[in-house]
Design a protein around this nucleic acid. Structure first.
Ligand SMILES: [Mn+2]
Ligand SMILES: [Mn+2]
Ligand SMILES: [Zn+2]
Ligand SMILES: [Zn+2]
Lengths: 158, 158
DNA sequence: TTGCTAATGATTATCACTTTCATATTAATC
DNA sequence: GATTAATATGAAAGTGATAATCATTAGCAA
């Protein structure tokens, strides 16, 4: 049973990776950019990393196997990921920019544990709808939004 | 009519200022800190400034009349304001920390125009309640939260 | 006043990026 | 496969906001 779930997760993960690689590659082509070894390596690492990773963390992880890839390239490449739509830049107020995986047309918000750093994702359609109403009542047109709940996770409360 | 409203606003503003000055002064005393000319001047400027002011802006405004007050002192003093409860630090993602006025026990969220920078405050009890429910369903205990809606304000849409 | 402590402000440091620029790589064309 | 023009890379220097340092000054209690 456990094995079965793992298999499913693995397959879904692999399919997702392939899809994102294609999206990024198409983006590169469309923009007249070049496909490079560095971009491929960084993409591979990003896709198999935590869902909310700081640039520093990703760079350190990379450096272990690819000491020749520069800091600047990692920064530049993550920006491209965001631009291509496979990643989103997020700030949890700790002074470090993080990049998270995004799926086409999906959106979610975050619960952030201020003790252990755990990040839980959630979706709430009712909240989203109310946000639109608030915006509308002020004549605003929402383009993006940010909802983050900071506090103590279940584990840290014990 | 207009005059009357202005009078009321002025009076409310003056009362509010006095109240905040007292809160800050009590805080200073309680913590064994010292009351200084700089702190008084900065507090006065802060209380009569925009509701969401960057440190830089406040510093420049101050410098016109008080060229002897240092940058570091402004930073330090605004932190004290936040600690004392009369101000709250906010980040709208433009790389500058802002400080906003807060009233005892009050909370509000923000609509931020990405074109002209206009900031509108709003409160929505239903959203707040739903946030608590989301947190509870994940075993989280919320300490603070951040809800910001970014987009185009009514004026900029025209 | 005196004496102790905290505050100030000029300066320097830090930290997370961002830019620069000489060199290397890519990919289209021949 | 060689040529070539354009983009990418990475080491290093630059930035901008904020924090720390430290010699000097100011508040305040006795
Ligand atoms: Mn997420
Ligand atoms: Mn506000
Ligand atoms: Zn936790
Ligand atoms: Zn606007």
């Amino acid at each position: 049973m456990k094995k079965c779930n793992m298999k499913i997760t693995f397959n879904r993960g692999a399919r997702m990776k392939r899809a994102k690689k294609k999206i990024f590659h198409d983006f590169i082509t469309r923009k007249g950019l070049k496909s490079t070894r560095q971009r491929d390596v960084i993409l591979d690492y990003f896709l198999s990393s935590d869902r909310h990773m700081s640039i520093e963390d990703l760079y350190l992880k990379l450096r272990a196997k690819h000491p020749n890839i520069g800091y600047a390239t990692v920064y530049r490449t993550l920006k491209l990921f965001a631009e291509s739509g496979i990643a989103r830049e997020i700030q949890f107020g700790d002074g470090q920019t993080r990049y998270e995986h995004v799926a086409e047309g999906e959106h979610h918000d975050h619960l952030v544990c201020t003790r252990c750093g755990t990040i839980v994702e959630f979706k709430n359609e009712t909240i989203e709808k109310l946000q639109s109403e608030v915006a509308a009542s002020h004549g605003f047109l929402i383009e993006t939004h940010k909802l983050e709940l900071y506090g103590m996770c279940a584990k840290c409360r014990k």
